[in-house]
Design a protein around this nucleic acid. Structure first.
Length: 337
RNA sequence: CCGCCCUUAGCUCAGCCUGGUAGAGCAGCCGACUGUAGAUCGGCUUGUCCCCCGUUCAAUUCGGGGAGGGCGGACCA
């Protein structure tokens, strides 16, 4: 079972910033960490019905923030999903509720998490007028750049140019102190920092989680739309199969491909960003002929054991599937109801 | 509104001129080899050929209409 005990000894700043790719700015984060109680953080998600490993990564950060004393808001961004061509508004809305339940099942503290539907405030007159003010401040090229890593489809619609501006505006309207997202959100957050002062709002502090490489190849970014992802719909068997097929050379720093494409070790990344943040100890079960079980209390020793050959990738994968299954099981049961 | 180009396997595209229901590369899947995966080797799968109508014994191919996408429509070149 996931245990918050693992991080009891950690101070607020460390809890807030661990496993992040970037914080903007470090000074602002330090100020928040000095007195985190009652501070507010948020992440927005386009409702998709089923939580996948990408959602889980930012959710881990929300859990860290809650344990550090933050209040957490999850924006179920129905209007954003609609603007990003994800289906009819009615369809999108109906999936939002399922998503809420899965976040709770995953481990967000229900009593300390506020779920807000975007359409509850984004259609108000004040909001709309502020949005138009931001539109007036932003070139199409800038909005398009901000959407580069987020947009669906291969052409940019006007709706998708409005999208990042709404994200910027959501921050003051939700009254949050910290915007959280994956690294694909950074250009949106930078845009927010640039444009919000034009309507007399504070530039928001933001925190970005890393993007995990494609499980199958170690290249690029894992995506729910292309390639293999792991979601709350997966059975134990499917998780084992996907993990077993994952790219996993015995190193944390694999060579680039012949074409010069950078590669990561996605198996290690999932251990680092998904398993160790939620488990106090990780036991790698291993047949006696290969040396018997191994036990880890932190990520780094596991990585160095893989590098040295002490831990074979096949055994690491067995353990990874086991712990991923434990993380997903509550959400999977939730979905089954 | 007008003009040009595009639409064929999951992706990028060839084939159409000279009608007989289709191919490559990549991806994917299976096997061999590694105690994982990858790499390497061997094998294999996949298609409403955008839609409708017409011509024809026969249309992915020809003709007409439509839809979707891209680019262009001052001057200069």
């Amino acid at each position: 079972m996931p245990s918050p005990r693992a991080i009891v000894g950690m101070d607020a700043h460390e809890r807030i910033t661990r496993n992040t790719a970037e914080v903007v700015t470090e000074e602002e984060i330090e100020t928040l960490a000095d007195d985190p109680d009652g501070k507010r953080a948020y992440v927005g998600y386009e409702p998709s019905g089923v939580l996948h490993i990408g959602h889980m990564l930012t959710a881990n950060k929300l859990i860290d923030l809650q344990e550090a004393g933050f209040e957490v808001t999850v924006l179920l961004a129905d209007v954003h999903a609609y603007l990003n061509d994800k289906g009819s508004f009615a369809e999108i809305r109906s999936t939002a509720e399922r998503m809420r339940d899965q976040f709770i099942a995953y481990g967000l503290d229900e009593s300390n998490t506020q779920f807000v539907l975007g359409s509850d405030f984004q259609l108000d007159e004040d909001y709309t007028l502020d949005l138009h003010a931001l539109e007036l401040e932003t070139t199409l090229a800038r909005a398009e750049r901000a959407m580069a890593d987020i947009k669906s489809g291969d052409s940019v619609k006007v709706s998708q140019a409005v999208y990042p501006l709404m994200q910027a505006l959501d921050i003051p309207y939700l009254g949050v102190d910290l915007a959280v997202g994956g690294m694909e959100q950074r250009k949106v957050h930078m845009l927010a920092r640039d444009v919000l002062p034009s309507i007399d709002r504070e530039p928001p502090t933001s925190l970005h989680t890393p993007l995990i490489a494609d499980l199958g190849t170690g290249e690029g970014k894992m995506s729910s739309s292309t390639g293999v992802t792991i979601s709350m719909e997966d059975s134990r068997e499917e998780i084992e199969e996907k993990v077993n097929k994952a790219y996993c050379p015995p190193t944390a720093d694999p060579d680039s491909t012949e074409d010069g494409v950078e590669r990561e070790n996605p198996v290690l990344q999932v251990f680092e960003y998904h398993v160790f943040p939620r488990f106090e100890t990780v036991v790698v079960e291993r047949p006696d002929e290969y040396g018997g079980d191994l036990e880890y209390e932190a990520y780094e020793p596991l990585e160095s054991d893989l590098e040295s050959g002490e831990l074979h990738p096949a055994d690491a994968k067995g353990a990874l599937a086991e712990y991923l299954d434990r993380l997903i099981a509550p959400g999977r049961e939730q979905l089954a109801e």
